[in-house]
C-alpha cells in the first residue's frame, strides 16, 4: 500500500510456527484454491483454508442451496467434497505447487472418522505445505443437529483428542466453534483441554428463510448457515468472551482465529481487537473474489493508523481499553 508505513504483520499460529500475515480465506468460501488463484496469488495469504473434507466423496444437498439475507446469506451446501483421498492426491499438491501455506479443514460423521481423515492427511506426500488443521466440529448443515459436536463439551473434547493423536505435535490444530450454544466458553475450555492448539470462531449461525411468494422454505435443506457482515457482532462477542475467560485464567491462553463478517481491513482489526490473532475472510469473497488479498493491505493501513508497528500489539487490545467510569 503506497504511503502507509511498513507494519510487521507476522503472527504466531502456534506450535512455534509463524505466518507472514494474519489473513486467511474461510473454509467453504474459497473452494480449494484454483478458482481464486485466477484473481490473486493465494500464496500471499497468511494461510489458505480449504473446504471441509470428509472421508468419502459427498454430493452435498440439492438446490436451492442459497438465499441472500440482509448483509449476508444463508447456505445449505451439505459439506460437498471429493473425500480426503482425492483431496490429498489432487488439491493439496496443487496448493503446495503454488507455494500456499494451507490450513486444512476436516470433518467426520463420527469422532473416529475425524481421526481417520486426519491420519490420511498426515500421511500424504504434500503434508509439508500444511501449516495447521482446522477441525470443523460445528457445521450446521447436517441432518441431525445432535451430530454438531461443538454443541457439547464432551463430544468436542473427544473429537479433538482423537485428531490430536493423528497429527505431529508441531502441526497446530484449531477447533472451529459454533456460536449457537448457551456458553461458548465451556466448549472452548473443553477443546483446549483436549489438546487444541487454538480455536476458530465462529462458524455460521443456524437460520431459515421462507419464500413469501411460494410460502415455503426457500432452501432445499430447509435450514442453513447464516454468514456475512450481519453476523460480525456475534463473532466479536464470541472472541471477546473466550479471550476474557483465558485472561481470567479459566484455561490456557491459545491463539484465536476470528471469522465472521469480515469485509474490510477495519473489520479484521475489530476481530483482532476482540482477541483474534488471525482473521479469515469468508462470504465477502463471493462479493469480491480479491477480498482476502485486499484485506491484507487494508489491515496493514488500519494497524499503521493506530501508530503501532506490529499487528500482534493490537490482539485483544479492546480488553485493556474499557472505560470504567
Amino acid at each position: 500500500m503506497a504511503g502507509s508505513p511498513r507494519v510487521d504483520l507476522s503472527v504466531p499460529i502456534g506450535a512455534g510456527r509463524v505466518l507472514p500475515n494474519p489473513v486467511m480465506t474461510a473454509s467453504g468460501c474459497a473452494a480449494n484454491g484454483r478458482e481464486l488463484h485466477r484473481f490473486f496469488d493465494v500464496s500471499q495469504l497468511g494461510a489458505f483454508v480449504t473446504k471441509t473434507v470428509m472421508m468419502e466423496p459427498r454430493s452435498g444437498r440439492g438446490t436451492p442451496r442459497m438465499a441472500e439475507t440482509a448483509s449476508g446469506m444463508l447456505n445449505s451446501i451439505g459439506l460437498q467434497g471429493p473425500g480426503i483421498r482425492a483431496f490429498v492426491e489432487q488439491d493439496l499438491p496443487w496448493l503446495k505447487s503454488v507455494g500456499a501455506r494451507v490450513l486444512v479443514s476436516i470433518a467426520g460423521n463420527t469422532a473416529g472418522e475425524f481421526a481417520d481423515v486426519a491420519r490420511v492427511l498426515a500421511d500424504s506426500d504434500a503434508f509439508d505445505c500444511v501449516v495447521g488443521v482446522e477441525v470443523n466440529i460445528s457445521c450446521p448443515n447436517v441432518a441431525n443437529r445432535g451430530l454438531v459436536f461443538a454443541c457439547d463439551p464432551l463430544s468436542s473434547a473427544k473429537v479433538i483428542a482423537l485428531v490430536r493423536e493423528q497429527l505431529p505435535r508441531d502441526v497446530p490444530m484449531f477447533a472451529k466453534l459454533t456460536p449457537d450454544v448457551t456458553d461458548i466458553v465451556s466448549i472452548a475450555d473443553a477443546a483446549v483441554k483436549a489438546g487444541a492448539t487454538g480455536l476458530t470462531m465462529i462458524n455460521t449461525l443456524l437460520g431459515m428463510v421462507i419464500d413469501t411468494d411460494t410460502l415455503r422454505p426457500h432452501l432445499g435443506g430447509i435450514t442453513g448457515g447464516l454468514s456475512g457482515p450481519s453476523i460480525r457482532p456475534v463473532a466479536v462477542r464470541a472472541l471477546w468472551q473466550v479471550t476474557q475467560a483465558m485472561r481470567a485464567g479459566r484455561f490456557q491462553t491459545v491463539p484465536l482465529i476470528g471469522v465472521g463478517g469480515v469485509r474490510t481491513g477495519r473489520d479484521a482489526l475489530e476481530l483482532i481487537a476482540a482477541g483474534a490473532t488471525m482473521v479469515q475472510v469468508g462470504t465477502a469473497t463471493f462479493n469480491d473474489p480479491t477480498a482476502p488479498q485486499r484485506v491484507i493491505g487494508e489491515l496493514e493501513t488500519a494497524v499503521a493508523a493506530h501508530g503501532v508497528d506490529c499487528v500482534t500489539g493490537l490482539v485483544g487490545i479492546a480488553h485493556d481499553r474499557m472505560v470504567i467510569p
Binding site: E35, T63, P64, R65, E68, N75, Q80, F286
Partner: peptide, 16 residues
C-alpha cells in the same frame, strides 16, 4: 440459469 452467489466457482450453490 441457476442461482449463484459468486459466479466464480467458490460458493458451491449453483450445482446441478
Amino acid at each position: 440459469e441457476e442461482a449463484m452467489a459468486c459466479g466464480v466457482g467458490v460458493c458451491m450453490t449453483c450445482v446441478m
